[in-house]
Computed example of a mutant assay.
Amino acid sequence: MSYTIEEINDLLKGELVGHTTHKIDSPEQLQHAKTNQITFIGSSKYIKHWSDSKACAAIVNNNLTVEAGDNRALIKVKNADLAMAKLLELFNPKPPVMEHDIHPTAVIHKSAKIGNGCKIGANCYVGKDVILKDYVTLYPNVCVFDDTTIGSHTVIWSGTVIRERCIIGSHCIFHTNVSIGADGFGYRPSDDGAGLTKIPQIGNVIIGDYVEIGANSCVDRAKFSSTIIGDGCKIDNLVQIAHNSVMGRSCIMAGHSGLAGSVTLGDGVIIGGSASIKDHTTIHSGATVGAGSGVMNDVETGKTVLGYPAQDARDTLKQWVALKRLTK
């Protein structure tokens, strides 16, 4: 695949500055780009690398001052990151090919209902009374246990296990080795004090539409009722969501972050990498938790918290400055 700069600009609907005769065959980072590649400049700190880059074109935020150059073009857009997403979709390779709609080695219970256009890869297991709606894709070695429903156009990558009674929405993507519906972590000291008593986890997991969950992340079933992930949530790799937690719409959780039991997130909450949220805590809509923070108390709507324990980000930054001065 290769495109002229004009064809790419037609897609992005930006302002074309300058011209290049090179056909563009792929996007690449600014410092690593070659002559037939296009790059991106979304911040002023990257402008200095443009003169040394071999890229024949760049997508640039329209509030930045960048010169096109000889046989080099710029496409100025409002948001280079969003334009990059469109362009990456254009160059996105096709997914792996499965030669059989349902591979002969897949084990599918006779009571399961398989919708139109579904693809089920080698060594998959689909249990009793499972419902796969239209155009669901299960890549090889996926297990879907009894009484689970998966919505249309959802894609589940290899190694993922979805336990019994879960409800999954449409257009979701679960990456490799995701765990949905494993037992929540519930134990209490036994009466004789000699060990721990396991608390049965009889609930399930409900996941909305357009949810994406990264590799090796876990969403545990509820003790009773449901652990809920709202529509449009995006969850990174190696994230833990504990039993009875509830996430609103369009929340983001970065890698290594975790929710303890019965945490509630409002809509549009952002959790930074390696942040930890205490059980029975509520983080209200639009709030942000900085990377590495430990949230011990509820967080107000729209507030940004940072630190361990987490508090208003401005207060934390002032404390860090004060500590740095003390060391001098």
Results as ranks from 00 to 15, higher is better:
Asp315Ala: 13
Ala85Val: 14
Glu164Tyr: 04
Lys303Leu: 15
Lys48Asn: 09
Pro189Glu: 11
Ile24Glu: 07
His153Ser: 07
Tyr139Ile: 05
Ile102Cys: 08
Glu28Arg: 12
Met296Leu: 14
Lys23Glu: 13
Lys234Arg: 15
Leu265Asn: 03
Phe185Cys: 08
Asp192Cys: 09
Leu87Thr: 04
Ile235Gln: 05
Leu317Ser: 09
Thr160Val: 10
Gly159Leu: 10
His175Pro: 02
Gly290Leu: 04
Gly294Lys: 06
Ser285Asn: 07
Leu132Trp: 02
Met253Cys: 06
Leu88Gly: 05
Gly186Thr: 09
His284Asn: 15
Asn36Arg: 06
Thr137Tyr: 00
Tyr135Ala: 06
Asp134Ile: 05
Lys119Ser: 08
Pro140Trp: 01
Cys143Gly: 00
Ser170Tyr: 05
Asn244Thr: 08
Pro309His: 12
Asn9Thr: 03
Leu87Asp: 06
His32Phe: 13
Ala106Gln: 08
Tyr210Leu: 04
Ala182Val: 11
Ile102Glu: 03
Ile167Pro: 00
Pro96Asp: 11
Ala68Thr: 07
Ile120Gln: 09
Gln29Ala: 15
His153Asn: 14
Val161Pro: 02
Glu99Cys: 10
Ile228Ala: 03
Ala73Glu: 00
Asn123Val: 09
Ser44Arg: 13
Glu6His: 14
Val136Ile: 04
Asn204Leu: 11
Gly18Ala: 03
Thr39Met: 05
Met253Glu: 03
Val136His: 01
Arg314Trp: 12
Lys128Gln: 13
Gly268Asn: 13
Ile47Cys: 04
Lys328Arg: 14
Gly186Ile: 07
Glu67Trp: 02
Gly290Glu: 00
Ile206Phe: 00
Ser217Leu: 03
His280Ile: 10
His256Ala: 15
Lys303Asp: 04
Thr149Cys: 05
Thr65Tyr: 09
Lys23Tyr: 10
Asn141Ile: 03
Glu99Trp: 06
Ala242Glu: 06
Ala58Ile: 05
Asp81Phe: 12
Lys223Ala: 15
Leu12Val: 12
Ala55Val: 08
Asn123Leu: 14
Ala260Val: 04
Asn92Met: 14
Glu164Ile: 07
Val136Arg: 00
Ser170Cys: 08
Ile120Pro: 08
Glu7Gly: 08
Arg221Cys: 11
His153Trp: 01
Leu323Asp: 06
Val305Met: 05
Asp183Phe: 09
Leu238Cys: 10
Gln311Val: 12
Asp101Gly: 09
Lys45Ala: 08
His284Ala: 14
Thr176Gln: 13
Gln240Ala: 02
Val136Pro: 01
Thr4Tyr: 07
Val136Leu: 00
Val142Gly: 01
Lys45Glu: 14
Ile199Phe: 03
Leu82Ile: 08
Leu132Pro: 01
Val97Gln: 15
Thr316Trp: 12
Ile41Cys: 02
Asn177His: 10
Glu15Phe: 03
Phe91Leu: 12
Thr281Ser: 03
Thr35Leu: 13
Ala33Val: 08
Ile5Val: 14
Lys303Met: 14
His22Ser: 11
Ser51Gln: 15
Thr227Trp: 00
Gly151Ile: 01
Cys218Ile: 11
Thr160Arg: 02
Ala73His: 01
Thr301Glu: 15
Lys78Asp: 15
Leu30His: 05
Cys233Gly: 04
Leu82Asp: 12
Asn92Gly: 09
Tyr125Cys: 04
Asp192Gly: 11
Glu164Trp: 02
Thr316Arg: 09
Ser226Glu: 11
Glu89Leu: 10
Leu196Asp: 07
Tyr3Arg: 09
Cys172Ala: 06
Thr197Phe: 06
Ile213His: 03
Pro309Gly: 10
